[in-house]
């Protein structure tokens, strides 16, 4: 499964990079969303994929029954998802604001500092 995931994640990175190379800011944002998801999946996959064994402990036990998925990677990704969202929300509003000032969706028109 990791092998298939590797191909998909590589494709996602390519898509994200391609979108970030565009002049349109909206496409840049889409690229950003793709990139953060791809990065999360990358960490998730690198930690090893385990089917049907969440890191949960039964009532009264001290350890999970049998081997379980890597909880540390999950915790990291969970944090990353939330922070990614915060950054995205900020970026989107910023873009909107910039569009109101500059009047264009083209980053080449935002090079000057004075508007």
């Amino acid at each position: 499964m990791e092998i298939a995931m590797a191909f998909v994640i590589g494709g996602l990175y390519a898509a994200a990079i391609y979108m970030m190379l565009r002049r349109s800011i909206v496409k840049l944002v889409i690229g950003l969303v793709l990139l953060s998801n791809a990065a999360n999946l990358l960490i998730f996959t690198a930690a090893g994929l385990t089917r049907g064994a969440p890191p949960l402990v039964n009532v009264g036990d001290v350890l999970p029954p049998g081997p379980s998925a890597d909880p540390l990677a999950q915790a990291l990704i969970l944090t990353a998802i939330v922070i990614g969202f915060g950054v995205l929300a900020f970026a989107v509003v910023l873009i909107h604001r910039a569009y109101e000032v500059v009047g264009a969706d083209d980053m080449d028109k935002m090079k000057d500092t004075d508007t």
């Binding site: 499964m1 909206v26 944002v29 969303v33 998730f44 994929l49 385990t50 089917r51 049907g52 064994a53 969440p54 890191p55 379980s68 998925a69 999950q74 990704i77 969970l78 998802i81 939330v82 990614g84 969202f85 995205l88 929300a89 989107v92 509003v93 873009i95 909107h96 569009y99 969706d105």
Partner: peptide
């Protein structure tokens, strides 16, 4: 792949992201 909490968070965040994008990008 056994990451229920992450999945739940992703669903919540994804919903919010789509709403946010639709709201803002529509003005562009």
């Amino acid at each position: 792949f056994s990451a229920a909490d992450v999945g739940i968070t992703q669903i919540l965040v994804e919903t919010l992201t789509v709403i946010l994008l639709v709201l803002v990008l529509f003005r562009l």
